[in-house]
Amino acid sequence: MAEHLLTVRGLTKRFGSNTVLKDISFQVERGEVIVVIGPSGCGKSTLLRCINALEPIEGGEVLLENDVVNPGGKNLIELRQKIGMVFQSYDLFPHLTVLKNITLAPMKAQKRKKAEVEAEAMALLERVGLKDKAQSYPRELSGGQKQRVAIVRALCVHPELLLFDEVTAALDPEMVREVLDVMLNLAATGKTMIIVTHEMRFARAIADRVLFLDGGDIVEEAPPERFFTAPETERAKRFLETFEFKSVKARPATP
């Protein structure tokens, strides 16, 4: 019997009269990596924000194990510490050094000992190749470095589930790789993750399961091999085709 870490049941989200998420249901097992893909505006990011209660929802529920995650709900602060989130725009705290960015929540929200938290932060920074940046300020880092710090910051709170919201979308192409490598590394160590991304080859490499979202619905849900080679729905096929380019090199032979 698989252990469900996260249960999303009948989740409905509206902005005004616009329904962004329609009755979404899925479950995530401990240690599973879910990749959510779909065209822009399909509600992927909103889904992640609802899981972390950054958005109020109009229907359904989000359960972390047996606890309801809900804006204004009780234990929300404790629950959020179990759900780490990394944003597209990094959102490091500009007035704090890298090390202080990472240790703020463990020390203030979790009341952990400074020495212990700093040792852990340094070990994590070393793992992502940024040990020498501990005393730098965010403005002194490249986008890829900032995003790796943001990942470490989320990890240091010891979340059971990690949410990644298009974390490479704002990066220069040559910096995308360093961030994706960190995430592959996390997946290899058995972290439970939900990843929203447009990097299809990365999705294929990291996912245990792909959720294809379109128009606020889960249109297709499949293991990555099947989804990327033989999608069942027409919409998923069309979406995947947008990432392919037909060669124009095959010009007619000149006599």
């Binding site: 972390n52 950054l54 602060i77 404790e78 959020r80 510490q81 759900i83 780490g84 989130m85 944003f87 725009s89 959102d91 490091l92 705290f93 500009p94 007035h95 703020l104 929540a105 203030k108 929200a109 979790q110 943001a150 910051r153 989320a154 709170v157």
Partner: peptide, 24 residues
């Protein structure tokens, strides 16, 4: 987003105010 990343880290409203918003 500064408030939201504080919230996502499990900081309370008051902690976000004093450690993130006010210093900036």
């Amino acid at each position: 987003h500064q408030y939201e990343s504080g919230e996502a880290l499990g900081l309370s409203g008051r902690q976000i105010y004093f450690f993130i918003v006010v210093p900036q």
